[in-house]
Structures are given as C-alpha cells and as structure tokens.
C-alpha cells in the first residue's frame, strides 16, 4: 500500500513540476507546491502504515484551550 501511495504521488509531482518548468513559474510557487505535496505524501505514508501523527484539529484545540476560548 505504501509503495502504491509513493508511486502515485511521484507521478503527480513529476507531471506538475514539468508544467511549472514549462510555464517558467517562480521558484516560490514550486517550493510551496512541493511543500504541500511533501506533507500529503508523508502523512499518507504514516496513515497507511498505521502511525497516525497528531492532527491539526488537535493543535487548534490545544491553542484554543491555551487562550481560554474553550475549556
């Protein structure tokens, strides 16, 4: 399953980066794209291997509790 996820992501990334180079987009655009896809890939692999990282919902909940908005 993990291999399939990695292969699918690599195909999408290769296809999109080709488009970025062809359109001569800015480096910042390529970096943001790679960061988004990188996070997606890492989280997908972790979820597929049963190691769920703490989620943004938990971070937001902790932040709201810290500022006293919710108990």
């Amino acid at each position: 399953m993990v291999i399939v996820i990695i292969v699918v992501f690599l195909i999408i990334i290769a296809y999109d980066v080709q488009g970025f180079i062809r359109k001569k987009e800015r480096a910042s655009a390529v970096i943001i794209y790679l960061v988004l896809m990188g996070i997606s890939l890492v989280v997908s692999v972790l979820l597929a291997s049963g190691k769920r990282p703490s989620s943004p919902a938990q971070w937001i909940e902790a932040a709201l509790k810290m500022v006293g908005v919710v108990k």
Partner: peptide, 11 residues
C-alpha cells in the same frame, strides 16, 4: 490532494 489527506488525518 492535501484536502483528501487532511480529511482522513484530521479526525
């Protein structure tokens, strides 16, 4: 892609 991954990850 990020949205689909996030939707599985977030809850």
């Amino acid at each position: 892609t990020f949205c689909v991954v996030l939707s599985v990850w977030v809850y």
